[in-house]
């Protein structure tokens, strides 16, 4: 319980720091809401007046508190680019699409990498392990966006299993959009599967050389008894932490892969907003993504503590 509270406090502090940084960072760059509303032709007087009116001349902490209050309620102000449209309404659908895409990718990773990692460790040195290892190493070297292009070419343009660029909004048909997202999800998941397989394999192998494994054998365990009864629980502890990183990487991967498959998610919106200097949108996305990463880390810390009795009692 003490551990939980400690982590919760850390979480809140981290979130505050991150929100402040992302607010402060975007307020130091030239160009603000007033300028964007009036355009470049506005006179200084007009600008000053509007800034005064919008509260942009207030001290930074004051503006931060006001912005944070809004942000907590989902109010990030208006987009610079699309006049009169709130950031929140711009974000709604892309957010859903990206969550869907990441979810599918994560599912693929868990379903494939865990059995494969265990098998690879179990048969370490045998052909299954060697082949998995080599393929993993090569896959990890393929940038997700190039992987996406290969998938587009092979499954889209050649085999016609999907139509590149013809994404169907989940509002129209949920399952059709899931169907389209399968290939982008593969592009995101494949390198991560390779990563997790390798990590899990090494983690299991590291555990297999521990002294307690010998003890377990001395009691008459079979080798699968040792693996499933003793080793796996130990080996999964670092993997859980690693998965937090993988989830963050999935989000990062989706930013790039959405571009390849023209999926209208957060990533695409982020890139176009950066190119268009639509800072309120960028700020909101950054805050969303970082918050998700921090919260996932928090959840993993708690999980870790549940799995490892050594941490539990500290």
């Amino acid at each position: 319980m003490k551990y939980f509270i400690k982590k919760l406090i850390t979480l809140i502090i981290t979130l505050l720091v991150i929100s402040f940084l992302s607010f402060a960072a975007f307020s130091v760059i030239p160009g603000d809401a007033a300028l964007s509303r009036l355009g470049k032709d506005a006179t200084k007087e007009q600008l000053l007046a509007l800034r005064e009116e919008m509260g942009l001349t207030d001290p930074l902490p004051e503006r931060y508190v006001r912005w944070l209050k809004g942000a907590v309620q989902g109010d990030f102000g208006e987009s610079y680019r699309y006049e009169g449209i709130t950031v929140q309404s711009l974000l709604e659908e892309p957010l859903f699409v990206t969550v869907l895409l990441s979810g599918i990718a994560l599912l693929m990773i868990l379903v494939f990498s865990i059995p494969l990692g265990i098998a690879s460790a179990r048969f370490s040195g045998k052909w299954l392990d060697v082949v998995t290892n080599q393929i993993s190493q090569i896959i990890m070297a393929v940038p997700p966006f190039f992987l996406g292009m290969i998938l587009t070419y092979v499954f889209g343009l050649t085999l016609h299993l999907f139509q590149p660029g013809k994404f169907i909004s989940p509002r129209e048909s949920f399952w059709k959009s899931v169907e389209y997202l399968i290939f982008p999800a593969v592009a995101i998941a494949l390198p991560k599967i390779a990563m997790v397989v390798k990590f899990l394999r090494n983690s299991v192998l590291a555990q297999l050389s521990q002294d307690y494994v010998r003890t377990a054998f001395s009691k008459g365990n079979t080798s699968s008894g040792v693996l499933y009864g003793h080793v796996l629980k130990n080996a999964m502890i670092p993997v859980v932490t690693f998965l937090a990183m993988v989830i963050a990487e999935i989000l990062a991967g989706s930013i790039v892969v959405e571009q390849v498959f023209s999926v209208p998610g957060i990533g695409r919106l982020l890139i176009s907003s950066i190119l268009n200097r639509d800072y309120p949108v960028v700020q909101a996305i950054v805050l969303y993504v970082t918050a998700v990463v921090v919260i996932i880390n928090f959840v993993v810390d708690i999980l870790y503590q549940l799995l490892d009795p050594r941490v539990r009692s500290v």
Partner: peptide
């Protein structure tokens, strides 16, 4: 904290600044 973020995302933030 920094390390828990994917570097692409942070690089994007930097570049947008």
């Amino acid at each position: 904290i920094l390390l828990s973020f994917p570097s692409i995302l942070l690089a994007l933030i930097f570049i947008s600044l």
